[in-house]
Amino acid sequence: MTAQPQVSRASVERTHYRPRAIWTGTLAYILHRITGVFLVLYLFMHIIVIGQSVRGEQAFNDALHFVQSPVFVLLDAGLSGIVTFHALNGLRIIAFDIGWGIRLQKALFWASLLVAVAVFAVSLVVARKLLG
């Protein structure tokens, strides 16, 4: 037998995320994960803010007004884009599990992304209007 291989995957582990190795499906996978992690972090923040209700109406309103400042409202526009993408791409994944659209996976991904970007743009307009 040949010598026992000494280099395992050390030299190749990063290969799947090189720009040229990222295809449509890979991009969908990466974006779904990143948006997912982001949403979990947001979830905790959201629950902590809303949870100020345990300390009464005043504390709740104070916390709420803090996250209703312009910076946060503009960030919310980004959030709606992210939520939309994660939801639509999630539906895309569930569709594959039912057996729908497996061969349309690329079109379905780009459609999800397009709608998400549109939602982001509309949210941005609404946010700017609210902020005056």
Binding site: W23, T24, G25, T26, I93, F96, D97, I98, G99, Q105
Partner: peptide, 26 residues
């Protein structure tokens, strides 16, 4: 399998492993 589709993308013989895996899940 997280349906990344890389396997289907690169197969030189036109096999769609992702499709097969989804059938197995079903």
């Amino acid at each position: 399998c997280h349906t990344v589709f890389n396997c289907t993308e690169v197969c030189p013989k036109g096999v769609e492993p992702t499709y097969a895996i989804q059938q197995l899940k079903k």
